[in-house]
Design a protein around this nucleic acid. Structure first.
Lengths: 204, 204
DNA sequence: ATATTATTCAATACGCGTTCCAAATATTTC
DNA sequence: GAAATATTTGGAACGCGTATTGAATAATAT
């Protein structure tokens, strides 16, 4: 409102522009040279600013890594969609999607780490304003499949979320606890789906 | 067989002794001062050796952190056992155990990170000879509960593993993706259990 | 132009995981 | 003792995430 003397703060568009630039370079670094190439020093060099400047725009590396989520989640979603069996049989479709989902992460453990293991566990007081829309979007496909499976649309939201969390767990376990003899991904995934298709929970 | 001249390699007992010593100090550091206190430099100081010596006995920090798994898993198992409802109703017992399991990790995110998020994802070529017995042991309680639930003991092993992986996924999601509005832990866990109690999978 | 304010910058620092290397030490056989 | 071998050590180095600080620079109102 009131005009003040001196240089004005960053304009909204400037902020977004810079964030977009950082995002682009971080993505390029990650795609071309892998996870470890995305360091604050190298990234700042690519962007063309001082390392400290990054900290004026982001509260830490974690927030920058989140810029890469959207791309990976989009790629994963596309992969899942390609692997949808051409059946109309709902259970078959859901199973195919689930297998593709878990398979994608197991085939790309670096991507998995980026999305699910790069948060600062413990420091939950920091208000990280992530674009949760990305996450929501990539889960939507499963919500649809679960919905198709259950025309009455009972408990679709939390059945879907439980399935997704379960699949992420299967991926995590398969990736990180490698010397334990886990059942096949197919078997464990089938088990999760059995839960989704089960009768509604009695809310007591 | 043939005696060779010169100093012999470390004796088996010496190796074990040193590993035990490192384990003790790592544990003390972690319990007393938290995750970030367990650094190679501080740990070596506590042990009383040079930092580089640790690398002669372990292939990296990850292998040292694994020494802490057993303790945490034991504590978690005990917590689960304490929270077993006094019911004999199998489903109730399993549900109580599952809720305790997930709750433990959510209440101790640092422990969760230590056990499930400190592996070097991607470097799977390294043959990490972890004591998988620890993991096996802490899952056994669930195998028992699942077995009680299903007297015919059909698919107990992979039903249990799927449940455990699912619960770990629920914990991971609740811990790391905090701004997404997940259903309650109770609801998601109930969903997983529904899968365990479902009819056997048709193996096709 | 000048004062004022916001932002960027370079430099420095800390501790981190990890690697390399030459010097020192320990333990054995001869 | 000497020679041989295994291990430990200290020191330095690299790049890392992050924080601080004071100087430089940019953009505005007057």
């Amino acid at each position: 409102m009131t005009k003040t003397v001196g240089r004005p703060p960053r304009s909204e568009t400037d902020v977004l522009e810079f964030r977009k630039k950082v995002s682009r370079h971080a993505m390029a670094l990650y795609r071309d040279e892998g996870f470890e190439a995305v360091s604050m020093r190298r990234l700042s060099k690519a962007v063309g600013c001082a390392p400290t400047t990054l900290y004026a725009h982001f509260q830490g590396k974690t927030e920058i890594l989140m810029l890469l989520w959207a791309d990976i989640l989009a790629e994963m979603t596309q992969y899942v969609q390609e692997n949808l069996k051409r059946t109309t049989e709902p259970t078959e479709r859901l199973k195919a999607a689930a297998l593709a989902f878990v398979g994608y992460w197991i085939d790309h453990p670096d991507h998995f780490r980026l999305v699910f293991m790069s948060n600062d566990v413990g420091r939950s007081d920091v208000d990280s304003f992530i674009e949760t829309g990305d996450v929501q979007g990539s889960f939507q496909i499963f919500a649809d499949l679960v919905g198709d499976l259950n025309p009455k649309r009972i408990d679709v939201k939390f059945r879907t979320d439980a399935l997704v969390a379960g699949m992420i767990g299967v991926a995590l376990c398969s990736i990180t606890i490698r010397n334990y003899t886990w059942p096949t991904v197919s078997m464990m995934t089938g088990q999760l789906i059995a839960g989704v298709t089960a009768a509604p929970q009695k809310s007591h």
